[in-house]
């Protein structure tokens, strides 16, 4: 056999290897399946990658059932929820609650302490005064605010995991899990995906996103961050391959009265909308922490908020302050990015 033949044989071998490699890729190619749910006043989209439609349907049905169950336990708007049960029993007696409620409140109280009360689930009496439902919003009077603020204190929530109860120690106290329950539900959704052998998938609840991994092709997800001044546009893109990302922005729910804008992220210490920043995005190991920290850092403001985030493991932040300046934590690197945004971030 001459040199040419050897060369040809090698070439044939190479081409066959490349082609068979590609067909092997095709064989294990996963297909995306998506289902949309309406949970906690939010559109929740669950996207999974698997090779079987039957499996996808089975898994998504399990997710559906679990989300409905958790909403029934954690939503303030459903009459049989634990949050509704606690309403009116402040200062009277401890209330037996579901283990999910214990877990959510446990984490919320932990971070209330760590954030010095910047995140506080007992803000409910103040939030009720504002009533952030479209068309029904109102600005409370100073007297009303003062009275409601006297009931805001996370240290007056007594959690008893052994007895499975929660006790609000003052009459008139209420809790609102709006800033934390959505993240918890996202995390439990991802648990179901993992338990069912799904390797690639995500849950997106109105921009609060929990990920199982990067994309099936190995690349990270590129998540767009809304520009608070024109929320239909993005000001930044962050590459994310794990954990969760959540954003709190003052453009989400607000009303205007007397020429002033009142948005729904209230400082538990003043009862007024927090006004140091316009948007906070948090990357964290799970969605529950990302969800509540986006609110807490929003209330803390850029300097204190960033310093706090720098002290946490595996947590990053991007903050748009009220002057339109963008701040980000040291674990993110700004890289030249493609396309339409000014800021493109990735973790090194």
């Amino acid at each position: 056999m001459g040199k040419t033949r050897i060369w040809l044989t090698l070439l044939v071998f190479g081409v066959v290897t490349v082609l068979s490699g590609c067909s092997a890729c095709e064989e294990v190619k996963l297909k995306a399946y998506e289902k949309t749910f309406f949970v906690m006043d939010t559109v929740v989209s669950v996207q999974i990658y698997t090779d079987s439609e039957a499996k996808a349907n089975l898994v998504l049905d399990r997710v559906d059932a679990r989300m409905e169950e958790l909403e029934g336990i954690l939503s303030a708007h459903l009459p049989d929820s634990d949050v509704a049960k606690l309403d009116g029993l402040g200062g009277i007696e401890p209330v037996p609650v579901n283990s999910a409620t214990l877990a959510v409140i446990g984490t919320a109280l932990d971070y209330a302490q760590r954030t010095g009360g910047a995140f506080d689930i007992t803000l409910a009496p103040v939030l009720r005064l504002y009533n952030f439902s479209p068309g029904n919003e109102r600005r409370p009077s100073q007297t009303q605010l003062k009275e409601a603020l006297s009931l805001v204190d996370w240290q007056r929530v007594e959690l008893n995991p052994e007895a499975g109860t929660v006790y609000l120690t003052e009459a008139g106290m209420n809790i609102d899990l709006g800033g934390v329950a959505k993240g918890y539900i996202i995390d439990r959704c991802l648990d179901i995906l993992r338990e069912n052998g799904i390797e690639f998938g995500l849950t997106n609840a109105g921009g609060d996103i929990g990920l199982l991994a990067g994309k099936p092709d190995g690349s990270p997800w590129r998540v767009g961050l809304k520009n608070p001044e024109t929320p239909s546009a993005n000001f930044a893109i962050i590459e994310v391959s794990q954990g969760a990302i959540a954003t709190s922005g003052d453009y989400e729910r607000f009303f205007i009265e007397g020429g002033k804008r009142y948005h729904h992220i209230i400082d538990p210490r003043t009862g007024m909308p927090a006004d140091k920043v316009r948007s906070v995005t948090i990357l964290a190991g799970n969605a529950q922490v990302a969800d509540l920290l986006s609110t807490a850092v929003f209330v803390m403001g850029p300097e204190q908020g960033l310093a706090f985030v720098e002290g946490l493991q595996d947590v990053e932040a991007v903050i748009w302050d009220r002057e339109g300046r963008v701040h980000w934590s040291s674990g993110l690197v700004r890289v030249p990015g493609s396309g339409s945004v000014d800021y493109y971030f990735r973790r090194p």
Partner: peptide
């Protein structure tokens, strides 16, 4: 596909899937 339109009260969602023109995947 970066952003759907959702009417929560009427439970209607309008979205785009498989588009190749966006430079983001999620929002």
């Amino acid at each position: 596909s970066a952003r759907p339109i959702a009417c929560l009260p009427n439970r209607v969602i309008v979205k785009i899937i498989d588009s190749k023109d966006g430079d983001i995947d999620l929002r």
